[in-house]
Design a binder for these strands. Structure first.
Lengths: 335, 335
DNA sequence: CTGAAAGCGCTTACAG
DNA sequence: CTGAAAGCGCTTACAG
């Protein structure tokens, strides 16, 4: 039989209210009574029904997280850290996968509302978005929203993310200072934040070296994965850039494998760099120079920010985390 | 304002009960009334409170899934397919990560019970387990359990998994018939099902070729990941096996990179094979021969089996899915 | 400090 | 076909 508050109350010879208060560490109940009740609850294997609790408290104790993709190393890692952080903060995590579809994301958020999540963390999809008005509905409901990893331009909500521009800036500066000049960038859609911020960093580094940005250096890819990296590298190899930089490590790996298969040496003939510093940059046959994102902090701060908002703090600003350049063997030092 | 059943009732001029029935497609309410109510609900943006609903129905509409790890490509893929399948079946998925710890798994299951999940899917941890009695507690509660991917020996519950023995059998048979004789196996703990089943397949293939299994062919690794593969390969290379097989593609990739770095050619000097047929076997500089697991079916069938049990079917047997050999360039054809 | 009672937002017999 | 009422298992003012 499943044991309820009432059962414990009967056994303890007190009212159900007292049991509830005791179990929730209310100062309203005498210490000895409370201890006795707790012991009893433990013995009986009491598990509070979270549905009933949530309904009564008007708080589900749950926060929702939407990610575009769970099979990418980046998001998988992020999920784990957010999971850790939410648990530590005493919340349960409701995870949903938008599969890079805005429509799916929208229906997920509807579900979140029905489930009475107290707040929402969104890792935005990596495509252009048009109608984001449903995000406003969230606010109407009084459910706070924090972007994690990136943001949707035009949506007024705080975010926590790596300073992507700075990361690319550091990388390109390094490449320039080690003698590269023609640096091709295999990027994503220029209208999504994760791309245009990186382009900013690229341009800043070039400018610092007194170089003009050649617009043809940017190669917008439909997706930012291994296969697109591979394909784009084959296309671009003939132009003989000094270096190719990418949106992430997977893509860089695709580039490297493509170049090697064309008998182009990495890094002797062309340098290649990734982004993220995840498993793929380590396991590449030619270990990949990359930009590290601190996903543990990203996860923690995202949850922390949401928590602050839930506690009534007014937050508008975003928070940017420092990226770090990780130099491995896929980039050369020229001359 | 958040709209409730009562609000719709007031607008429609009917009782709250009628609204509830209408929204749940009860045949007890006249079609026109129902349609009017549904339209109204839609206009008002009604979202039923799932907490209240779950409490009243004594059914949460939720199933729980525990996986040991979310950062592995295998589990990430499995999660996605299970997520798909549960949604299609009209359930919500509660995901939790046991981090390969039995204690964590146990506390997760406690949480699942508190959340009134209707059934549980467990992808077992990959270590030896001792005390699994808490799984019995689940049954006491009447919460059905289905193992997915593997099972715990001694726990009486149905499972859905790839026929791992058969997969290894196919692989080893292929290696033997293409001229390999000394086949080293970098495996996990022999006491977990995912290892000992594979060993069974290995032995069966050897036997079929009239060969004796050399016990030193098995190298039990503490973990079955890239780093362990790399390390074990370095250790074992001196013995000059004809082939090295592993527990998964990541591990095989570690082996290949280790061998290449020792100037041992793959597959000319030593053949290497993985398991799973996931991204890592494709992106390896030397694409990896492997055994494909059909994770989409695995996910679907796992959910389907749980659903059957929830609908009252008595199921005891497990279900094994056919593996498939995928031949790539990491294994040679000798002689 | 403790108990009786109302309420959270649904569902579901039970009458009519 | 529809409504009034009880109940799901908690929490929380309100009295005492």
């Amino acid at each position: 039989m499943i044991v309820k508050l009432k059962d414990i109350a009967k056994r303890a010879g007190v009212s159900q209210a007292t049991v509830s208060l005791a179990l929730n560490d209310s100062p309203l109940v005498r210490v000895e009574t409370a201890e006795h009740i707790k012991e009893l609850a433990k013995d009986l294997g009491y598990q509070p029904n979270t549905l009933a609790r949530g309904l009564a408290r008007r708080r589900s104790g749950t926060i929702g997280l939407v990610v575009p993709d769970i099979e990418s190393a980046y998001y998988a890692q992020l999920i784990r850290h957010i999971d850790d952080a939410t648990q530590r903060a005493g919340y349960k995590l409701l995870l949903a996968i938008s599969n890079d579809s805005l429509q799916k994301e929208r229906s997920i958020l509807g579900g979140f509302l029905a489930n009475k999540v107290e707040g929402v963390l969104i890792a935005p999809i990596n495509k252009e978005q048009d109608d984001l008005t449903y995000l406003e509905a969230l606010k109407m409901h009084g459910t706070p929203l924090v972007f994690t990893s990136a943001y949707y331009p035009g949506v007024n909500a705080p975010f926590v993310m790596t300073d992507l521009a700075e990361g690319t800036y550091l990388l390109v500066k390094y490449l320039l200072s080690s003698g590269h000049r023609k640096i091709a960038f295999l990027c994503g859609s220029k209208r999504v934040s994760t791309t245009y911020l990186r382009l900013e960093g690229y341009a800043r580094a070039m400018q610092e070296f007194g170089l003009k940005v050649d617009p043809s250096a940017y190669l917008e890819c439909r997706a930012v994965d291994y296969d697109q990296g591979y394909k784009a590298a084959v296309d671009i190899a003939a132009r003989r850039p000094d270096a190719i930089i990418t949106m992430n490590d997977m893509m860089a790996l695709g580039v490297i494998n493509a170049l090697l298969s064309l008998n182009i040496r990495v890094p002797e003939d062309i340098s290649v760099a990734g982004y993220d510093n995840n498993i793929f940059s380590r396991i590449s046959f030619v270990p990949i120079t990359t930009v590290a994102q601190d996903l543990k902090s990203l996860g923690r701060y995202s949850v922390a920010m949401l928590q602050k908002i839930l506690q009534g703090e007014e937050i508008v600003a975003g928070q940017k985390l420092e990226p770090k350049l990780v130099i491995r063997q896929s980039t050369a030092i020229k001359k």
